[in-house]
Design a protein around this nucleic acid. Structure first.
Lengths: 163, 163
DNA sequence: GAGATATACTTGAGTACGCAAACAGGCTAG
DNA sequence: CTAGCCTGTTTGCGTACTCAAGTATATCTC
């Protein structure tokens, strides 16, 4: 194992371990607070921030970093708990929107308080604001980066949630 | 969503997305090269680097960031493909070691070349050596950090792999 | 306007974990 | 020496995805 390798490997391993540990911790926290997972939380957050509280499923999938089939199953659960609804696009019948419901916003509010506090505390304990910013920009260069698509193709038609 | 929060949240989201994207990419690469996953690779690598090519299962679990039950199932697979064997500790009958086999070392060699090259390339494309070091130290402060336990409680007794 | 191709989404089957509980062996205190 | 606790491991059961393949719908080309 030659001598150029180690830092790249270490970076990857640390990334993986940190992600695993944090995800596990936050999942428990969120499970306790509102019976949702970290990914569910991300979905609700994205929807709540999007215009009209809705997004195309595929954009949502991309935003939270799962595959199209992943978002289907994920939303299956959230639809079953009535935290999001679906809304068919009248212009393009291929696409359907995921729409956050009032119940969804309630759960988001209820969980956001403790979750975000925990998140902030975790980072505040270990980094100065400066270091945190550095971390964010460095992570942003990695593949799969947020791409923070500010929800294109939304805010087009009136919203009517079904089911 | 108040104004202190965003960088912590962004850090976490980027971490998650980067990890997901990289893991998926490397999994495909490794699957093609040697029918193993990223986690399998990590296990083989750790074992190969450990004295006598063996580690206590629980230390291994911690090192690669899975739970004890996770390591059991993970090693089930590697044992089935004869890439690792097991070795009972004669001093403490609770513990059993995972031992890398010759076949395991072969697979590791075969996959390491391309995998590590890919890893290095990925980082080299995006970061200077300096930035990479920064990233590594910042990530090292996150929970679940490597703790690089240099395999305590190993190198004690003669190794005899069974089945 | 008829294919061909691309996009959005769903479904079937499989996998890689996790948690909680069970169990076995070891350690300590009386 | 025995009762209680701690540690290492496995097992049952559940879940959150993945990939590959299938179905609609849209778009592009001639």
């Amino acid at each position: 194992m030659n001598s150029q390798v180690p830092s790249a490997l270490t970076a990857f391993v640390r990334l993986a371990n940190a992600h695993g540990a944090m995800e596990r911790a936050f999942n428990q926290e969120l499970q306790a607070a509102g019976r949702i997972t970290v990914t569910d939380f991300e979905v609700l957050r994205r929807l709540a921030d999007a215009p009209d509280g809705r997004m195309r499923r595929i954009d949502l999938a991309h935003a939270v970093g799962v595959t199209p089939s992943g978002i289907t199953r994920l939303l299956d659960g959230l639809e079953a708990s009535e935290l999001v609804g679906r809304h068919h696009c009248t212009q393009d019948h291929r696409v359907t929107y995921a729409v956050i419901t009032n119940a969804g916003r309630d759960v988001l509010r209820a969980t956001a308080a403790t979750h975000l506090a925990g998140l902030v505390a975790l980072f505040a304990e270990r980094f100065t604001q400066n270091e945190l910013n550095q971390l964010v920009t460095l992570l942003g260069r990695l593949p799969g980066a947020d791409s923070d698509l500010s929800c294109p193709a939304a805010a087009v038609e009136p919203v009517t949630v079904e089911s």
